[in-house]
Design a protein around this nucleic acid. Structure first.
Lengths: 122, 122
DNA sequence: AGTTTTTTCAACCGAACGGTTGACCAGCGC
DNA sequence: GCGCTGGTCAACCGTTCGGTTGAAAAAACT
């Protein structure tokens, strides 16, 4: 539980049961019992999963709310998308630039040293 | 290793060291040794982390590539963003719809039952 | 060729994970 | 009052995880 927030969120969603819970909570709040019903495991286990989601910030529990205390905090997902998008974009950018270099290279054979594919030094 | 692909990717990025590796690989391929250098752990440990990333599909190793065999496969990140965006959007949509309901409600006080804020029954 | 560097394999360790069972506690209906 | 229903807490169990060390294998450089 001492891990950084990003690790907690990623780790929380690394479990298929917890992902399914999040998916179901996206369409509406629910109680622990309701959440537990479809799964072939004890209510205690579901309660544990819920706690993991809560510690990650993905879910909140409102004690006073009758019959549907579990609520999804979807904004936390933005933490992940921000991280992912940053590096995906960076890799994409680099790939694009590499493409440019490869396209320019054949026009200037002097810069290539001993490239066997060019046959520049017979 | 028998887990579903999505779980593997989320789980792979749940570790800060592995996230940092991915971040660095986004700006260019690297060798295992290069990747290991900044971290305060054995090269074997880094090799293990790399294997996890490889099993998740986030990274590939090209044996023939001189001195920089480790390559980031950024498209795999789309797997996650697709999942995340789907449910974030759904939750957002639901929230928007709830907002509409709350905005319409005050116009029809007959539907509100004993709301103390309205002072409808003194 | 031979040697040195780089990377992986294997066994081990402590801690965390995902699940179980059993006991416990808070409301709610009677 | 009493008993259900719904939920959590606590202890336990097998497996996985993140790291170590030591040895072996593979590549790279003379």
């Amino acid at each position: 539980m001492t891990a950084d927030p990003l690790s907690r969120v990623f780790s929380a969603l690394a479990d298929p049961t917890r992902r399914d819970m999040v998916a179901r909570l996206a369409s509406g709040d629910a109680s622990v019992g309701e959440l537990a019903r479809p799964y072939d495991m004890s209510v205690q286990a579901v309660s544990k999963h819920l706690r993991v989601l809560e510690d990650s910030g993905l879910v909140t529990r409102t004690t006073d709310a009758r019959r549907a205390p579990v609520h999804l905090e979807a904004e936390v997902l933005d933490l992940m998308t921000a991280w992912i998008e940053r590096y995906r974009r960076e890799a994409e950018e680099r790939y694009r630039r590499l493409d440019d270099v490869l396209r320019d290279l054949p026009d200037r054979p002097g810069t290539t040293e001993n490239d066997p594919t060019t046959g520049a030094a017979p």
